[in-house]
């Protein structure tokens, strides 16, 4: 996984709720493609609207999205994360996230930050009041958002996930260190629940 320590830039307010992963990346963009090259298709239906926030000059290169509740709901497509990262987004701040999208973010090094809705609205106001030049900084090690006016807003990230992101850990390698435990569990289970194994044996 890509390491994440901090990001700083103009945060783009996109406060509508329930931005689903279909809206982030259309399925046909994920047919026959790899993990790269998706950035140009991120939010393509919204980008067709001239007043969409990421079309505005101030926010065109924003690395941070200020989002509404339930961001990333819907489909499990990890392409949603790849598309956001491909478009230069490193952090999404929302009151809540879809569960699968949230997990996918941490697999790739995109930081999802949960803050209360009022706090996100305040951040959006500070950015807009600065005419879109005020920068927001997210520091994962300290778990603070530094707002355009310099306020520090704390947030919490699960300790395991924070470590993995700060150090760019590989989950598979970590788990395979426990291979003996897995094999022992499986041996016990094959004795206790033979039915779960025998009927699918190759």
């Amino acid at each position: 996984m890509q390491k994440f320590e901090s990001v700083e830039g103009v945060a783009a307010p996109m406060l509508r709720a329930n931005v689903d992963t279909d809206l982030i990346i259309r399925i046909e963009r994920l047919v026959g493609t790899g993990r790269t090259g998706l950035g140009e298709h991120a939010f393509e239906q919204l980008r067709a609207e001239p007043d969409f926030v990421l079309n505005k000059p101030a926010y065109r290169d924003s690395p941070i999205i200020l989002a509404g509740a339930n961001f990333g709901c819907g489909s499990s497509r990890e392409g949603a994360v790849w598309a956001l990262m491909g478009a230069g987004i490193a952090c999404v701040i929302a009151p809540s996230f879809g569960d699968i999208f949230f997990a996918n973010c941490f697999q790739n090094g995109l930081l999802p930050v949960v803050l209360p809705e009022a706090e996100i609205r305040a951040l959006a106001r500070e950015t807009e009041d600065s005419q879109g030049v005020g920068r927001t900084r997210i520091d994962l090690a300290r778990q603070v958002v530094v707002t355009p006016t310099g306020r520090e807003v704390p947030f919490a990230v699960d300790v395991r996930r924070r470590e993995a992101m700060l150090e760019g850990l590989d989950d598979v390698a970590l788990t395979l260190k426990r291979q003996a435990e897995i094999l022992a569990w499986q041996a016990r289970d094959q004795a206790a629940r033979g039915w779960a194994w025998n009927s699918v044996a190759l």
């Binding site: 993990r35 499990s76 497509r77 990890e78 994360v81 569960d99 699968i100 997990a103 996918n104 697999q107 790739n108 699960d158 989950d171 598979v172 788990t175 395979l176 291979q179 897995i182 499986q186």
Partner: peptide
């Protein structure tokens, strides 16, 4: 339950998943 591509790779390689109990 549904998972993303990276977690799917983890399951295929280890037959396990790292998860916080809902």
């Amino acid at each position: 339950f549904g998972i993303g591509a990276s977690e799917l790779g983890h399951v295929l390689a280890t037959q396990t998943l790292r998860i916080v109990k809902p």
